[in-house]
Design a protein around this nucleic acid. Sequence first.
DNA 1: CGAGGCGTTGACACCCATCAACATGGGTGG
DNA 2: CCACCCATGTTGATGGGTGTCAACGCCTCG
Lengths: 244, 244
Amino acid sequence: MPSRNLIAKLKGFFPVSHDLRTDLNQLAHKRINLDAGDALIREGDKYTCMYLVDDGWLLRARFLPGGTRQIVNFALPGDFLCYNMLMFERSEFDIVARTPVSLWELEAKSFREMMTRHPGLAEALMWSNAHEEALLAERVVSLGRRDATQRLAHVLCEIVARLQLIEKHQGDTLLLPLLQEDFADILGLSVIHIVRVFNRLEQMGVVKYKSRRVQLVDLDKLKQVAGFEGDYLHFSKRNDVRPF
Amino acid sequence: MPSRNLIAKLKGFFPVSHDLRTDLNQLAHKRINLDAGDALIREGDKYTCMYLVDDGWLLRARFLPGGTRQIVNFALPGDFLCYNMLMFERSEFDIVARTPVSLWELEAKSFREMMTRHPGLAEALMWSNAHEEALLAERVVSLGRRDATQRLAHVLCEIVARLQLIEKHQGDTLLLPLLQEDFADILGLSVIHIVRVFNRLEQMGVVKYKSRRVQLVDLDKLKQVAGFEGDYLHFSKRNDVRPF
DNA sequence: CGAGGCGTTGACACCCATCAACATGGGTGG
DNA sequence: CCACCCATGTTGATGGGTGTCAACGCCTCG
């Protein structure tokens, strides 16, 4: 069932209709597998199609002259990728698998066709866009006005919330595929500073990092340090939206 | 004609159909005026409707504990506002008029209704979303990996490009409603540092700032300093999209 | 003519980057 | 099963970019 994670994500926000499930399962006709490190698309490449992440983590990043990298966002199971192929011709960013990844390729020639033939998908896409935009806006706030400790705490909260949304988080330990270098490039910091901030958070009794394992010692304290308002991910659901 | 600026913005990217114009003009039924400084909506408020900016500049911002502010983005004529009211219940940000502003209130109860009754608008909205997402992603890159000089140069390039898109920029002088404090809060810097960076750019013979007037002494040099790739605003147009 | 918003300058401090060196640990081949 | 190696993680010393603070200048508007 290609749409399991997406539906988990959506159904916290609005009732997911039978039609939407049908749309998704019809469109997700071809499965793609990537190894960790493989690029799905490179900056400047022409888009070929849309994707729905079935499993694994991917990073969307820009490389700048000087060799630095900024990760704009990361995709988890249930997220769409390359959806703005419906609007733009070429990708502005690299999208690279951080783990082994499996994707569904979605057949959609144009947004217009999709709206008429698969209105459920159009709506799911629109919702997913809005969700991603909320994450991006929050990242801008972090990069602009939060210090290194708050940034790291905040992105950890974001990850917990997003994993909970797709029912992939339990217990007090987070198993992440992200290297400290990835955290650095997500948060606009240096690798070395990430180490120091993790140390500080450990001394504060908030989290412990050990080789891609984050132990959430005190989640409430983490949210407090981050100034994390989960609302933008969870509680803004619209209750007045009816199924088809 | 409520949709003049929007159509100017869109038509560089895909052919704008008669139906879209009709949709827009039908939906834009009520006009709203704001004075400079007025809030269109505050963080935490329930959305009431969508808007299309007819004239003026608005800032979308978050205030953090400690009194700092981060401006997430700014809206110009032809931009939609509060479009994710179709998906979310409440606003995560303040939206405040920086100049006197006039807006069209758009009647749309749900995305589903909009798709069926005004498919042109749904597509325009989707495109506008994609455009805004591209701007946000680029802002993340700036905040994460560009220094103060590059950031300021880059946002100036962005403004020039966006004004050209709606045919509101000519000559070598940019008349901006943005205070240096606004630049600071857009770029995640302090006001004082904005002053220093403008001085540096002036010494380099790139731009001159004088009381909300930016003289573009050498636009090519500005783009070069910024590492500005205008593609993400201009040249990613899809030529295979046909009108309705 | 005063007031207040905005812009500007300099002194100083701090956060975080850079660099170099070293520790750890999992994978691979012998 | 061990030895090696490379990716990853860690530490300390140093420096630069940017923030903070305090004070002053300018311009606009009432």
